[in-house]
Amino acid sequence: MDNTKKLEEFQAKIDADTKIEPKDWMPEDYRKHLQRQISQHAHSEVIGMQPEGNWISRAPSLRAKVVLLAKIQDEAGHGQYLYSAAETLGKSRDEFIEELQTEKAKYSSIFNYPTLTWADMGAVGWLVDGAAIVNQVSLQRTSYGPYSRAMVRICKEESFHQRQGYEIMAHMAKGTPEQKAMAQDALNRFWWPSIMMFGPHDSDSPNTGNAVKWRIKRETNDELRQKFIDKTVGQAEVIGLTIPDPDLKWNETRKSYDFGKMNWDEFWSVVNGNGPCNRQRLKHHIAAHKNGEWVRKAALAYAAKQKEIQNLKLEIRN
């Protein structure tokens, strides 16, 4: 079968909403697009452990500590399923990690911002996980089977994280004046980076074409961003916090909020390595990986010895 024929059949499957599975034929660009997107998603889960991990030792109650630890553990688990989903496309986790560490692969830029106060644990859960859910709910319908199934599993936990983050914010917003100020400050710092998590405007987003045609992406950046803003504004009002956007206004004709201009220069500057924590996050990841090298080697050496012994036993028996 020639490539044009294969491509037609592939597109027909996509159009019929039949999931593409690892053993199915797929265009090289589809494979590459997914390898990049899924691994980037996995890296984001893993790098995202750092800004939240920053507050585990200082969680203000034992209950809060347990909730935060469990959340970060979930994120590590998400990284794990996403690496497995990405591996079905023919590259190993080690290769993906190598790409991350050599800056060939990216992770969500939001994690290049620091978590400065305990309220940031609220803001991250509420806004960052909140934005992630909007994107991930949409990705449950993505055309690649393993990615779609990973999203279904992950979404359940993400909505839990979002609620827990919101709970921290709500609690602080009605706490002492200092707590309320911390909550507002966290919202001020995380609002714009969170809404920029959805990526550039559709008009400036070169990758959207194929991704939409192949149904990797089911909704555009701007559509997803609007959904997130529409559901979040009311949540801020309920707890008495102010979204730091003077242009934010309900638009009765669109039945949606209008909002102000995002600072794309800052966004690209952070993506390109100038965020407050880019170097720190990567260094941390590389250091942990390096420090673990002797442990991984020992585990491999031990497993190899065990296998030899096993084989020897079998030989003796035969």
């Binding site: 034992l62 500590k65 553990q73 794990q80 420090n291 673990g292």
Partner: peptide, 27 residues
């Protein structure tokens, strides 16, 4: 819990966080 994001592999990060969670629960 200090091991979080510092484990030699992701699976160990998860295992060590689990152990931390158990201990804090017991405490």
């Amino acid at each position: 819990s200090e091991w979080c994001s510092n484990g030699p592999v992701l699976e160990e990060d998860i295992a060590m966080t689990n152990i931390a969670l158990d201990h804090i629960g017991q405490a």
